[in-house]
Amino acid sequence: MERSDGGLPGDRQLAELEQALRPWLARYLVREPSPEASRRLAEEVLLRARAERERDPAQARRPSLPRLVRLELAGYGRAFWIASLALGVLLVLASADLLAQPGPAPVNLFAAVLPGYFLAAMALGNGWGNRAMRLVESVTPFPPALLWLIRLLIATAVDVLIGLAGTGVLAATVGVVQPLAFLLQWLAGVLAVGGLLAWLLFSRGFLWSLGAGVVFWAVLAAGQEGLIRAGSAWSLGGDALLLVLGAASTAAAWHRSRAAWLAGAGSSG
């Protein structure tokens, strides 16, 4: 641009030009959004997503099992994992002593202790003694049984891991005479206590299930010695029966909880 006198435009003219163009250029300027604007946008997006979900209930996200397991695991403290490890080591050491002695071992320590540990794992996990949290967790669009089965699953998995690792170490070091029978003995006890716990949890509430679980565990521990003494066939038959009972009561618990949920009952005790 040239001035009328042939020179370059001055600062004043440039400023006037900038002023005149400002309204036209404003729309092309990108401003950083304020926190308030971001919050409103986030709220709007979520509200729209919610409205869509309400239009089509099938669109509601079903809780994914792996994600829920991960979130649940976060609820177990470091003390729980240290105690689990310590228990596993103690069980191996005590069992090694028993198995090293001549003659058949009078008791399977794994079968006697692991069902009790399962009860402790459930009691120390999330939600057990927290009624208000159980109430809140039950007011969801999905059956609360899912959550409880995940908790049972975690407790069972930790129990089985300790048992398997212990059995492996014993088989490799002292040599367990019948590794499969040894494994079945403690696994049957764990599954039977777990199944009973699940079934009573969804039918009678948590105090009942915990009390009955402890009594059943005591009966199992006391009856184990008699079965071992009666012979391996009796022992095997007893363990198989416990295994079937455990699986059947877990399935019954699931159906019962689902039926209660469909009838509008939210709480699991």
Partner: peptide, 15 residues
């Protein structure tokens, strides 16, 4: 909790 309720977990939690 958002996960249990079938919501978009991270966005709802932040809000």
């Amino acid at each position: 909790m958002a996960h249990l309720k079938g919501l978009e977990p991270e966005g709802e939690a932040e809000l």
